[in-house]
Design a protein around this nucleic acid. Structure first.
Lengths: 234, 234
DNA sequence: TGCCGACTTCTTGTCGACAATAAAAATACA
DNA sequence: TGTATTTTTATTGTCGACAAGAAGTCGGCA
């Protein structure tokens, strides 16, 4: 007798985290468009769960700012805040610097292996011209460095910022050319060396330069995009 | 006919935020002891709400790290992580510096009024030797400066760190002497002046010194406490 | 024809109940 | 008497249903 009736796919306490992680990824990877409505009923059907666990996952996402809930009204995927981009870049740059500095100061030998592995993945993605893979592995690479720095608060903020950055980069990934990324590979190598050498100042300088590169690249995408809209037929 | 039957005190969408804010305050003010269990049923009775909104409030608190949920088991008020205190102090100091710098750079004239008002409140609390008031108004003062700096990311992290600090200070508030706080009032005044003068370097230096003061004060409390426990009868 | 108000509908916020899981208690056994 | 095993119990995770708001719809009135 085949009693596969309504067997829930998720184990007991893992329903919400599944929904949370799935939605989180979809938001960051822009599979869910910014501003698009998030319907609880719909998600309930999709994940074969009651609305209660869905709701808890949404609360967590809202706490991270990935979705916005209008009380008693609809809840939407948070828009990308172009006006606040200056704040974002400032915080991102500082976190690049601080985490890399701390990695140079506090890392263990074992940390390097993990960082190297992720750098290799990034290099592979660059060579394969896999833009989406590049964005993701670049993020993982820097998170690994932050973790080697051993400061939870910086790592948390930095991770959130990098993921926010992934959203923005996704918007422009089509215009990603393959010149600059190759440069990133070299910069990553230099950063690893500075960390291994416990050279805090060098790590800081490299991280700052790296951040500037990325910020100016994103900025150039945005201004390029602005030009397009400015050329609207009138 | 007096039909005040079961009239819920909270309006529709405000149940969760009430619970969230109340519990948040109680945790920060140590009315709920770190490590003590948080019973959903009990809270449900207390707030005259179903377990569902209570649960959502708890999820938000967990996202902020104020409570810790062991899956399928009990959920407790997060313990104060004395081992991670180094990370905490490092992040706190950096945020003191960054937010004060930015306030000097980006503040509007109208921001100063609010900051001044809070500084006055702090001063009043110091003169009244109201330690608890001092802790709270000091926090508000620095949050106001951070807001004048206009960087959401820093303000958010800083607020969380300051509230975490409030918990730690509460632990030792009995040993708070009234010498150092008076010094804080002067330091606050200097910081306000530096901000008004748009003197970024001075603001940075003052903030760094202020942070060092507070960190070393907390450190002295903790070592004093350690000595006490070290004197246990054996 | 254009604007205002009642009505409908759709989504969210809340509720009480049930099921699963893990700790605690009770029992059996060596 | 101490340990292993079963049973109980308490608490969490999940569910389906109901009620309150808000948006959209329809009709009335100027």
């Amino acid at each position: 007798m085949d009693d596969t009736e309504k067997q829930p796919v998720h184990k007991r306490g893992y329903g919400v985290s599944t929904v949370y992680e799935t939605l989180r990824n979809e938001i960051i990877e822009l599979k869910l468009a910014p501003g698009s409505p998030v319907d609880e009923q719909q998600l309930s059907d999709r994940f074969a769960l009651s609305r209660t666990p869905i709701r808890e996952a949404l609360v967590r996402l809202a706490a991270e700012g990935l979705i916005t809930t209008l009380t008693n009204r609809t809840t939407i995927v948070s828009n990308i805040d172009f006006l606040g981009l200056g704040e974002f870049f400032d915080a991102l740059t500082l976190m690049y610097r601080v985490t890399t500095r701390l990695a140079a100061a506090n890392h263990q030998a074992s940390d390097i292996d993990g960082i190297r592995a992720l750098q290799l993945q990034f290099q592979t993605a660059v060579e394969a011209r896999d833009v989406l893979g590049m964005i993701a592995t670049n993020r993982d690479f820097h998170v690994a460095i932050a973790e080697a720095g051993r400061n939870r608060y910086y790592t948390d903020l930095f991770t959130r910022l990098l993921d926010q950055g992934r959203r923005i980069l996704r918007l422009y990934y089509s215009s990603f050319n393959d010149v600059l990324p190759r440069q990133y590979v070299g910069e990553h190598e230099d950063m690893i060396q500075a960390i291994i050498n416990h050279d805090i100042d060098a790590a800081d300088k490299l991280a700052a330069a790296h951040a500037d590169q990325i910020v100016s690249q994103i900025r150039s995408y945005i201004t390029a995009d602005n030009r397009q809209t400015a050329r609207l037929p009138l």
